[in-house]
Simulated scan of single mutants.
Amino acid sequence: MKRVFFTYREMKRRLEDFYSENQAKIDAIPVLKEIFDALFASFIKFELSWEILTQDYSGSTLSKKNVKVQLAKHLSKCNMLVYNYCIKNEITDELPNFKGSDVYLNRLSDEKLISRSEYSIQYLVKMGESISETGLVAQDLEDLKSLFTNYEAMAPRPKVLIGKQKIAQQDLSDAHADGLHIIQERLDKVMESMFEEAEPDFYHTYVEASEIEKPNSSKLAVKGSILDKSTKLPVPQAHVIIESIDLDHEVKGKKGGFRIKKLEPGTYTLKVEAITYKSISLDLIHRLGETNVLEIEMEAVNYE
Rank of each mutant, 00 (worst) to 15 (best):
R3T: 11
A209I: 00
I162N: 04
Y303Q: 11
L187I: 02
L144W: 00
K219W: 08
V235D: 10
A24H: 12
S244M: 09
A155R: 01
N66T: 01
V160F: 06
H249T: 12
L270G: 05
K12Y: 06
L136K: 01
K88L: 10
D110T: 08
K166M: 04
T61Q: 10
H74E: 08
S109P: 03
Y57F: 15
Q23Y: 04
V190T: 03
D248G: 03
S193F: 13
R107T: 14
K64D: 07
L263E: 04
E47C: 04
V301T: 13
M154I: 00
S130E: 12
S132G: 03
R259T: 07
A177I: 11
S76C: 10
V272T: 11
L113V: 00
Q165K: 15
N22P: 10
I162R: 05
V69E: 11
K255Y: 11
I280W: 01
H239K: 15
Y123R: 02
I131F: 11
K261V: 07
V137R: 14
L227H: 09
F195R: 05
L136M: 05
R287I: 02
S173F: 04
S218M: 04
L147E: 00
L39Q: 03
K126I: 06
P265S: 08
E21A: 12
S49A: 15
N302Q: 14
L39P: 04
T92Y: 12
S120W: 02
E152Y: 06
P30L: 01
E196P: 04
L136E: 01
T54V: 07
F43H: 11
W50V: 00
A198L: 12
E211F: 06
A41Y: 08
A155G: 08
Q55H: 15
E10M: 09
Y123N: 07
Q169S: 12
L263N: 03
P215R: 10
Q170M: 10
A175N: 02
I241C: 00
S244Q: 12
I226L: 06
L15Y: 04
E129A: 13
K189W: 11
G266F: 13
M127Y: 10
D178Y: 06
F40P: 02
Y119W: 12
M80L: 14
Y151K: 02
D143P: 02
K261M: 09
K189D: 11
G253I: 11
K262T: 13
S279H: 13
K159C: 03
L75G: 02
E142Y: 09
